[in-house]
Structure formats: C-alpha cells, structure tokens
C-alpha cells in the first residue's frame, strides 16, 4: 500500500532558524540478514519535525534506524542526508544523534565521564566537553546522578542518559529507537516534552515504537512498517481516510439500543455489522456520515435517547490493525 507522503509538522517560524533543515531520504533501500529480508526497497523522506516509525516487532524498524544513523550499510539503495550518504560520512554523522534500543552503557564510568568522552569525540575541547556533558545531564534531569556509575542506573535513568548523549552536539537529525521503554509516567511525560521541543526547534526527529499511543503523544506524522515494507505514511487522519473500504466502528450509548439497532438495520447498506453492549450498541458502517445523520434523525423523531457517540477507529491502534490485517 502506498500513500502520498505527508510532511511532518513544520516548526514554528520563530524557531525554525535554530537548526539547519535536514533532508533525510532513503532511496530503494533493502537489507538482508542471511536469508531474511529485513527491509524491502524502502523509499522514504523525512522533513523537519517529529515522525513516528511504527510497526510490530520484526517489522524492520531497528534495521531502518541503524541504516539511517550509519551503523549498518544498505544491501541495496542509498541513505542520504542532504544528498550525501550517511555511512562513514563524518559530516553527516556530526549532525545525527541516536538513542539506541539496546541497554549497553560503559558500566564502570560515571555519567559525567561517559558524556565527557562522547563530547570529546564530537569535537568539544577539554573544559567545554565537561561543561557540555553537565548541561545535557541537567537537561534530561540527571543532575543528581552526574557522578554515579552508570552500572547502578535504573532503566529510566539509562534512557535519560542515552538521550543526553544524543543531544550533546545539538543534532539536526535525532533518531530514537523505542525511547520510552522502561520509563515511569513522569519520565515519559518529560521525554515526550523534550522530543516535541526538538521537533518544534526544527530538528528532524524520528521516533520508533510499537506502542502506538506513545507515538501519538509525540506526533501526528507516522510511517507504518510491516515485513520490511512501508505500509503507509502520512498523518493519522490522512491514513485513516484511506481506509474507507473498511467498516468503521461507532459506539452509541442509548437508552434503547435494540430499537436503535432495528431502525438502522432497515436502511440497506448502512450497517456492515453491529454488536450489542451494556447500555448501547457498537455499529460497524462503511458510511459513517450517513449513519450519524440517521442517528440524528432517530433522536429528533424521539425514537430513542442518545447519550454519547464515540468513533472507535480514530486512534493509531485501529489504523495499524486495519493496515496489517
């Protein structure tokens, strides 16, 4: 399935100059691991703003991300940042920040030492490296753990430390692989806030997750991957609009669900199915607009009282379930 790509949310004009707009593009990118095709001729373009990369485990998200950050080579095709290949390109690597999905850290080092080492490798000189490391640790809320060894860090602290490492050099492109895993609700909120801020600042932010509502909290722009292929890309509503061939579910809370169901079933082609629930009915319809109009008519005629009408398929979980099925 292919859809017209929709750009991610544009950064606010007042802040758009803070970062160099980074055009990240994948051209017919494929990658095999032995006999397993992890990515199959993927064409994608990412604009500044936050884009969610969604897919079930094994969809190819992490492979795609490792190609984007230059940790692996595509078997076929090209990964380009502003027209230049990323892999082994120092100029491109200097603009990319990466939060891996792995837990690997230098367990013997303190958070300060780890980030200072990384800052030096990213071109900061001695004292500036230390100061930059401290700034980033404070930004992610690790100021109380600066001189603790990372081996004793909780999962949430490790995620924060990895984010601090990715922010050290003010990247134009930030790639986060399952960043919210293991975070408590407060950390999760902070993490989402930081990601949205970066998107607003004009960074090209790519966030992968298999937890759909997490991505929804960060962005409306998504790419859906499945079996190494791009299933769909664009905004959640634009993708939802593609699904007209599928019945949409509408939950109606009413005082007389059986009467309501009987009335609606008299209209040919209106309902594809229905399900009685406590205090209401779930309607499955290929014509949601006509169904809602009919509901209004029934209420106006006094056939029943309607307390609530909830579309059940507007969230990403439903979109994803439809596309994968």
């Amino acid at each position: 399935m292919s859809v017209a790509p929709a750009p991610a949310a544009a950064p606010p004009a007042a802040q758009a100059t803070r970062r160099s707009p980074a055009a990240l593009r994948l051209e017919r990118v494929s990658r095999w691991y032995g006999d397993v095709l992890a990515l199959d001729a993927v064409d994608l373009a990412f604009a500044p703003g936050v884009t969610g990369l969604l897919g079930p485990n094994g969809a190819g998200k992490s492979t795609l991300i490792r190609l984007i950050v230059g940790l692996a080579s595509p078997g076929d095709g090209r990964v380009l940042l502003d027209g230049e290949p990323v892999r082994n390109n120092l100029g491109a690597l200097a603009r990319i920040g990466y939060v891996s999905d792995g837990d690997g850290l230098y367990e013997e080092l303190t958070a300060r030492r780890f980030l200072t080492d990384q800052a030096r490798l990213r071109g900061f000189s001695g004292p500036a490296a230390g100061a930059r490391a401290e700034d980033c640790l404070v930004r992610v809320g690790l100021q109380d753990a600066i001189d603790r060894r990372t081996g004793g860090f909780s999962k949430g602290m490790r995620q924060r430390l990895k984010l601090a490492q990715a922010l050290l050099h003010d990247p134009d492109v930030l790639v986060l692989d399952e960043p919210l895993t293991g975070l408590d609700p407060v950390m999760r909120r902070d993490f989402i806030r930081i990601v949205r801020e970066l998107g607003d600042e004009g960074a090209t932010v790519l966030v992968s997750s298999h937890v759909l509502h997490e991505v929804e909290a960060m962005t409306n722009g998504i790419v859906l991957l499945h079996h190494g292929q791009v299933l769909a890309e664009g905004t959640v509503p634009s993708i939802r609009d593609l699904l007209d061939k599928y019945a949409r579910r509408i939950r109606v809370l009413t005082d007389r669900p059986r009467d309501l169901a009987r009335e609606l079933l008299q209209h040919d082609g209106l309902l594809a199915g229905l399900q009685m629930t406590e205090g209401g009915v779930i309607l499955e319809t290929l014509r949601p607009d006509r169904t809602c109009a009919q509901l209004q008519q029934l209420v106006a005629n006094g056939a029943c009282r309607v307390y609530a009408v909830d579309p059940l398929d507007e969230d990403l979980a439903s979109v994803f379930a439809y596309l994968v099925d």
Binding site: R18, S20, G91, P171
Partner: peptide
C-alpha cells in the same frame, strides 16, 4: 543556530 554551536568533527 545548532550548526554554529556544534563543533566541527
């Protein structure tokens, strides 16, 4: 800008 704050490789 981020680029101006970012040191060269």
């Amino acid at each position: 800008t981020a680029a101006s704050r970012r040191p060269a490789p």
